[in-house]
Design a protein around this nucleic acid. Structure first.
Length: 442
RNA sequence: GGUCCCUUCGUCUAGCGGUUAGGAUAUCUGGUUUUCAUCCAGAAGAUCACGGGUUCGAAUCCCGUAGGGACCGCCA
């Protein structure tokens, strides 16, 4: 049987490290076993779903290199949900409820005050025909609940092991709203069955929900789906992740010029027993993927690790790989320029600060003017090569008796305005004699 | 309140009854680079949340406690 997994985001916000991790795990699980991966947009709640988020989600996935064999929107399947709803209804698994949200809220508060279970009391089941008629005459429309019959739902979770949930501690789930809109608990179960999903891998927050869904799936069909629940990720502070937490959205990382492979490498590492390292590409991540390496305890997102991985990737780039990106930043960036500068970059786009230093004359104030003046006098004529710097500084050394930091640091500052940077013997060739003279003389 | 789950170096983790508790990363030191980064070599870093029990022997099994998380919605 072919493995089929799915990622089912609701388009109510941006994708972040947490939910993209779930997507990646599902994608890798499918890829690793030669299976299929489906992108399902859970947009049954039309009020909260936004088209812009749908395109953003697809763009983020594409940018990261996570492709899908098939995609569909739940909003296109309302008829099918209705059909399956009728089936469950005729099987007597669904019953009509007439409580308003306010009434339900009041019940919950009462239950909480009494210290009992906050579970729906099934009073709708005891309604007389007359009471129902009265509600209907009042203009109330029913919402529909699924009658939970299992006391304890057990399954073998691929990540958490044997799970045993007390279903009597959970309310009968509402499957259809008063306005006829199917709820996630139901539409998801219908789709997972219809699309022959073999493995549902999702966050730990769905664990008790899974108990409910298994019973629904069993009522629809024979359950053949294997479930796995991974621990959620925590923010670096130890707090839970939020959809509104923009600092970890994929979009924000892209805007910060973080490379996709850096994000993928972090995701393939965090909360797993894998070594923290930069991966060579998505292919390596697929090959190395093992579901069992994913931990059941929540991992912390360390942005510092992401940045370190990205830095490694930047320094790994060959000029040819990113030539168009570089020349777009500055057309004068050639291979020599890139190779000289890349060791000092954390993102590719940071190169712009160096094109500025190299190409635009930026005179730096020196408090060591006499020394700089002397250096100018001793500066070799062009053409310059890799030995020029040594020849030059040796001459200065001889004349002044300076050595080490005293010798070179004032020069670096005078040429670049910075106390650190690429190797001087290469950098001075990039800047060139004319510009250096210009800078020193100012 | 109920249900389910988690807790091992700063961080991510290995560990499945006998280990000097291993690795990765970060940190520090030395070497290389006449700076920084890279690279190489090395070091330090964990009373295995706490308490009890089982056992000749517990990070590992059992019970309890504490801390943390998820869910308990006409959201997903």
């Amino acid at each position: 049987m072919t493995t089929i997994t799915r990622f089912a985001p609701s388009p109510t916000g941006l994708l972040h490290l947490g939910n993209i991790r779930t997507a990646l795990i599902n994608w890798l699980y499918a890829k690793n076993s030669g299976g299929k991966f489906i992108l399902r947009i859970d947009d049954t709640d039309q009020e909260r779903s936004k088209d812009e988020y749908i395109s953003q989600i697809k763009y983020d996935l594409e940018w990261l290199g996570i492709d899908y064999d098939e995609t569909f929107n739940q909003s296109s399947r309302f008829e099918r949900y209705k059909e399956q709803f009728e089936k469950l209804k005729s099987d007597g698994r669904i019953y009509a409820c007439y409580e308003t949200p306010e009434e339900l809220e009041r019940k919950r508060k009462l239950q909480m005050a009494a210290g009992g279970k906050q579970v729906y009391d099934r009073s709708a089941l005891k309604l007389t025909e007359q009471q129902i008629k009265d509600y209907e005459n009042d203009g109330r429309k029913p919402h529909w609940r699924f009658l939970l019959q299992t006391e304890r739902m057990k399954w073998n979770d691929l990540l958490k092991g044997e799970i045993d949930i007390d279903l009597t501690s959970l309310s009968d789930p509402v499957l259809f709203r008063e306005d006829g809109v199917p709820l996630y608990t139901f539409s998801s179960a219908v789709d997972d069955v219809d699309y022959n999903i073999t493995n549902v891998i999702r966050g730990d927050d769905h664990t008790s929900n899974t108990a409910v869904q298994i019973e629904i799936i069993n009522a629809l069909d024979k359950n053949k789906i294997s479930f796995a629940h991974h621990a959620l990720l925590k923010a670096s502070t130890g707090d839970k992740l939020s959809k509104r937490d923009n600092v970890i959205s994929i979009d924000s990382f892209r805007k910060d010029n973080i490379e996709p492979i850096s994000i993928l490498s972090l995701l393939a590492t965090i909360g797993t027993s894998n070594s923290i390292e930069l991966k060579s590409g998505i292919k390596q991540i697929i090959e190395e993927f093992k579901l069992e390496t994913i931990s059941t305890s929540p991992g912390r997102i360390e942005i510092g690790v992401l940045k370190a991985l990205n830095k490694k990737q930047v320094q790994k780039f060959d000029y040819e790989e990113i030539q168009s990106r570089l020349t777009e930043i500055d057309e004068n960036v050639d291979k020599k320029f890139w190779d000289t500068i890349k060791g000092n970059l954390e993102t590719v786009e940071e190169i712009s600060s160096w094109t500025d230093i190299v190409f635009n004359s930026k005179p730096a104030e020196s408090d060591d003017k006499d020394y700089i003046k002397l250096a100018l006098e001793l500066m070799p004529e062009e053409p310059w090569d890799d030995d020029t710097w040594t020849t030059w500084t040796n001459a200065i050394k001889e004349k002044t008796g300076r050595k080490g930091k005293e010798l070179f640091l004032p020069l670096r500052v005078a040429f670049t305005g910075l106390t650190h940077g690429p190797e001087m013997k290469l950098l001075i060739q990039l800047i060139g004699r004319d510009k250096i003279v210009e800078r020193i003389q100012t």
